[in-house]
Structures are given as structure tokens and as C-alpha cells.
């Protein structure tokens, strides 16, 4: 038995030293890593709402509307209330994610204060085909979403003119990625009843400011 311990002593001591070192490194860096994540989300929130100066995180409780509503599932979602320089609310920034063509696509969607219109969106994470699908991150595609409705299912269409309020121009050669973005946005906003919550929260916020 003692023989075993002596043989393994180097491994054991080394493991201990490494464990302590890693804990120390983690202790030093973890706050910074956390701050990075928050900063990235906040930057995205400021980017997707025009005229934004500050974004503050708000937690909303949601009751999801499932296809089998035996027991309503409540979940929490962190959204950003985006305000301008005078502290007046100019919109919302909402996280959304769903399946894309290659892997999950993660977005931050910008909305007007009443949550009825989309202002813009930013792709946080995607693995879409380089040169085709990953054009969803480009300004050209993003600009098509400004002013579109959140009440109806969005459609990525091939035509370039006469687009309805629920239609956006699809990227040539990447219809699936384009439609995926539309679906992700619509599902997150409409199916969970998020838009009503946001609109209500905006009204409350305005009331508070009014006092």
C-alpha cells in the first residue's frame, strides 16, 4: 500500500498544486469573463435600437403557451430596456435563438417601445455557410427588418419590391438561413406572449417616469 502511495506521490502532489493554481487563475479571471459576456450583450442591445444611449437589464417572467397547456411553464427572460440620453425609453432588446441551417443561431432583436415593430437585429452566434448563409450578419440583410411587424409570421421572400410588413428580402442562395432568422424572431416574440409583456412594461415605465 505504502509502495503504491509513494509511486503515485508525484501525480498526487502535482494534482494538488495544479488544482490550487487553476482555482487561483479562475478566481482572478472569472469576473472579467463574466463582464465580457455582459458587455457583449449590452453592446448588442445598444446597436439594435436606434438612438440608444443606455441599456439596462430587466427580468421578465413569462408563461409559455405550449401546444399542450396542461401546466403553464413559467420561465424568466433577461431583456434590455434601452433608453436615450434623456432617459426616455426608445426600445427593447430581446435575446432569441433557434435552429439555423448549420447550427443554432443566436440573436439580439431590437424592438420599438410598444414591441409592435422590429428596429434591427444582431447575430451573436452563427455557424452558417461562409459567403452565403453568414450574410445574415451583414448590414444589407439586417436593414430589411427595420419596421417589420412582430404580430405576423415573417416570411423571407425572393421579390425585391412591394414587400409587405411581414415580408423581408431573402439572401440569394441562402433562403433557409434567411427564413431561419425570421422564424427565430417570430417564435421568440409571438409564441411566448413576450410582445404583450414588453408593451405592458413600457406603459408602466412611462407611467413611472410621468410621476
Amino acid at each position: 500500500m505504502i509502495g503504491y502511495v509513494r509511486q503515485a506521490s508525484l501525480v498526487l502532489i502535482l494534482s494538488l498544486v495544479i488544482g490550487v493554481t487553476l482555482a487561483a487563475v479562475n478566481d482572478k479571471l472569472a469576473p472579467r469573463i463574466k463582464a465580457n459576456e455582459l458587455q457583449a450583450r449590452e453592446d448588442a442591445a445598444l446597436e439594435v435600437v436606434p438612438g440608444a444611449a443606455k441599456a439596462e437589464q430587466v427580468s421578465l417572467k413569462l408563461t409559455s403557451i405550449d401546444s399542450k397547456p396542461k401546466q403553464p411553464i413559467t420561465s424568466e427572460i433577461d431583456v434590455y430596456r434601452v433608453v436615450d440620453e434623456n432617459g426616455k425609453q426608445v426600445g427593447w432588446a430581446v435575446p432569441a435563438q433557434g435552429p439555423g441551417y448549420a447550427d443554432t443561431i443566436k440573436l439580439t432583436v431590437g424592438l420599438t417601445p410598444d414591441a409592435k415593430r422590429i428596429t434591427d437585429f444582431k447575430v451573436i452566434y452563427n455557424q452558417e455557410t461562409p459567403g452565403l448563409g453568414n450574410k445574415i450578419t451583414g448590414k444589407a440583410f439586417r436593414s430589411h427588418f427595420a419596421g417589420k411587424t412582430t404580430a405576423k409570421e415573417l416570411l423571407a421572400v425572393k421579390q425585391t419590391t412591394d414587400l409587405g410588413e411581414d415580408e423581408v428580402q431573402a439572401i440569394t442562395g441562402a433562403t433557409i438561413s434567411s427564413q431561419a432568422v425570421c422564424d427565430i424572431i417570430y417564435k421568440q416574440l409571438a409564441q411566448t406572449g413576450l410582445t404583450e409583456k414588453l408593451a405592458a412594461a413600457s406603459r408602466e415605465g412611462i407611467d413611472e417616469n410621468g410621476k
Partner: peptide
Amino acid sequence: MNTLATDL
């Protein structure tokens, strides 16, 4: 296509 995050 990633389905890891969807319902089971």
C-alpha cells in the same frame, strides 16, 4: 442543423 436545444 442543431436540435440539441429543442424539446425531447
